[in-house]
Design a protein around this nucleic acid. Structure first.
Lengths: 219, 219
DNA sequence: GACTGTGAAGTAGTTCACAGCT
DNA sequence: AGCTGTGAACTACTTCACAGTC
């Protein structure tokens, strides 16, 4: 009930899932929810849910459950989602254009406000609402549009360069879609999504038919 | 050096990364590689690399390192990547079309051979090389094209339905891009990628400026 | 001397089980 | 009675440290 400081990474990785579930519960007019119900909806275990929420200094009520709206605020607050966070996509190839168009980002509070590329032939072309800008404009765009998160959607060979540009333009959070390891200063938060990797992991478990794949990643 | 049975999930999740690095090393004519070098290239620690590879019954040579081509085969074999694995994408919306077009899948051995949708208005339209087929044709397509993996790219509300269709069409490996929890029989390998979730996790670490985000997920 | 393979120690994450509130 | 919050036990993963091989 007090508010302990350090939230373990495994818990942080589940917060977006709690958020999603709580948004749905709020829509369907539920005002309280128990850890058991949250566990069912998210595919977790009830004890884990309670422990996770306890790190937020959650306000559950014994005998009753958690207040949906209150908890929703707590989770949003913990994730730092109190204001929309503008995203810039670097790389206007296939993947970059798709990401810039993907409505799921805007819906969840991450509007894609800019799309840049280093290739002058691509600069000026339109992708949905956006016009492709030159990568050199990054520092100006970051300031002008208040960008917070950079998405790297360039080929592996230039991913490190894209990351460096984003960091020197002042961004502190990067999501890398290129299938290669990119390094950044320790103050910069960095995650990677490798779509083909997911298929390879699936391939492993399908291959080993019978061995069921564990649920979802943590860390 | 013997070949112990159960590969821990955290190790499985890193195998694709080793694979990628080994492919690059092979291209650049390296014939051996040490655990330390692999660790550098992947952003790991050398002891972890050695332990991971030991689960494959790896053939490292003390004093020398690992044979690049031999290890490449071992990893490919462990991942079950000895033959190409056909993929079907369910959902021809924004995301589904982008995934069907994404060249990274084919490049890594997962050709997208079919794209289906339940909406008759979308059936017959073209996306890259593919013509959108009706979701009812799934069981036939699975047999005809030898599909192995299903990718779910429909809205949350219909994700469970899409999963059920894929499972009853005989697929044993599903990748879910919808931001909701989907259940499947235990024999079916199932993973989820939630793009907005990654941004939310980044938001957390950016918010808590100074707390550096740990590297990459395992499990 | 360089580098692997692996027990053992250390750390993180999960689950149990129950005391404590409503 | 129902459900939270949390120490304690357990399980998984990582890292150390060193014996063993080339």
């Amino acid at each position: 009930m007090s508010r302990p400081r350090r939230i373990p990474h495994a818990t942080v990785a589940r917060l977006p899932e709690y958020l999603r579930i709580l948004v749905e519960l709020a829509h369907s007019q539920h005002d309280t929810v128990s850890s058991g119900r949250l566990a069912d909806l998210g595919g977790f275990n009830a004890a884990k849910v309670r422990k996770d929420l306890s790190y937020l200094g959650s306000y559950g009520t014994r005998g009753v459950g958690y207040d949906v709206l209150g908890l929703l605020d707590e989770v949003r607050e913990a994730l730092g989602l109190t204001a929309a966070r503008g995203v810039v996509v670097v790389g206007a190839g296939n993947l970059g254009r798709a990401l810039a168009n993907y409505s799921g980002f805007e819906e969840r509070g991450f509007p894609v406000l800019a799309l840049v590329d280093a290739d002058v032939d691509k600069v000026g072309t339109r992708v949905g609402q956006l016009e492709v800008r030159h990568a050199d404009e990054l520092p100006a765009l970051v300031i002008e549009l208040g960008l917070r998160i950079g998405v790297i959607a360039v080929p592996s060979a230039t991913a490190q360069d894209a990351a460096d540009r984003l960091v020197s333009a002042g961004l502190k959070a990067l999501l890398n879609f290129a299938p290669s390891h990119v390094s950044a200063p320790p103050k910069v938060a960095m995650r990677r999504v490798d779509l083909a990797r997911e298929l390879q992991v699936l391939s492993f478990y399908e291959h080993q038919l019978g061995t069921s794949a564990p649920g979802e990643p943590a860390r």
